[in-house]
């Protein structure tokens, strides 16, 4: 049973393949970009504003507030990265209700790519914020003995990030596929609704965890506090 969108190949030339993952990612990108452009090309700066502008402002303000709440820092520098993570995953998951749509987040390649981006963004933001020396020093905190464990933790949380999102979305798709063959009329719809909820929650978790990792690297807090911050178990599924 192959349900990964990676395996749906539309076009191939030598090693280059144009599979469903990439195509639907482009679709999501197109929707997000064109939608944003349509609304923001004539923004109102006065007290009266259109409903769509209001929606976008609510979304952007909400993301900013969440970032500020988690990082306790100015959300400005992190907003494009973390906000795009959330918006991309949320949109990709929400479009699941469209028949024939294959969520790119149901592919391990996509989730791995996003996790790799987070994995690279953490040291980039950390070094940019605190300098290379101070950033690298936190790997040997509290003792140099912890260095291997810190590195392993860094890698494993990246893998966990990727697998968590992939597993949730893929399982939703699989469950609906199985239920469709068993009880085709009513039950799959309920599971689809559940899948929408799961998709939103996963988008939120992914973005917040990314922010937490970045915040732990950029803030001047003690490692113990960082550890307590980096593992909110209630968010993980």
């Amino acid at each position: 049973m192959t349900i990964s969108p990676d395996s749906i190949v539309y076009w191939q030339w030598h090693a280059l393949t144009l599979n469903a993952t990439i195509v639907f990612t482009w679709l999501v990108m197109l929707i997000l970009t064109v939608g944003s452009w349509l609304v923001t090309r004539n923004l109102s700066e006065g007290p009266e504003l259109s409903r769509l502008q209001n929606l976008l402002e609510v979304v952007v303000t909400g993301i900013r507030d969440q970032i500020a709440q988690v990082s306790l820092q100015n959300p400005g520098p992190y907003l494009p990265f973390v906000g795009t993570l959330f918006l991309f995953i949320a949109t990709a998951n929400l479009l699941n209700i469209i028949p024939g749509y294959q969520a790119p987040t149901g592919s391990l390649s996509t989730t791995a790519a996003l996790a790799i981006c987070v994995f690279i963004a953490v040291p980039v933001f950390g070094i940019a914020n605190r300098g290379a020396g101070r950033f690298l020093r936190h790997y040997i905190q509290p003792t140099p003995l912890m260095l291997p464990f810190n590195i392993i933790g860094e890698l494993s949380r990246t893998v966990a990030l990727a697998v968590r999102l992939y597993g949730n979305i893929m399982s939703g798709t699989v469950i609906v596929a199985i239920l469709l063959s068993l009880t085709p009329y009513f039950f799959p719809i309920v599971m689809q609704l559940l899948g929408l909820l799961t998709g939103m929650i996963q988008a939120y978790i992914f973005a917040v965890l990314a922010m937490v990792y970045i915040a732990s690297a950029t803030s001047a807090q003690e490692p113990e506090k960082e550890n307590t911050q980096t593992s909110p178990p209630s968010h993980e599924r």
Binding site: T17, T21, L32, T33, T40, T84, F88, S109, A112, A113
Partner: peptide
């Protein structure tokens, strides 16, 4: 599929730039 992974990384970075340019 590591080719897809690298393509998605590029896609994501492009999306970050696009959204930064057109949304945030």
């Amino acid at each position: 599929d590591w080719i897809t992974v690298s393509a998605q990384v590029v896609n994501f970075l492009v999306l970050v730039w696009l959204l930064k340019r057109f949304l945030y």
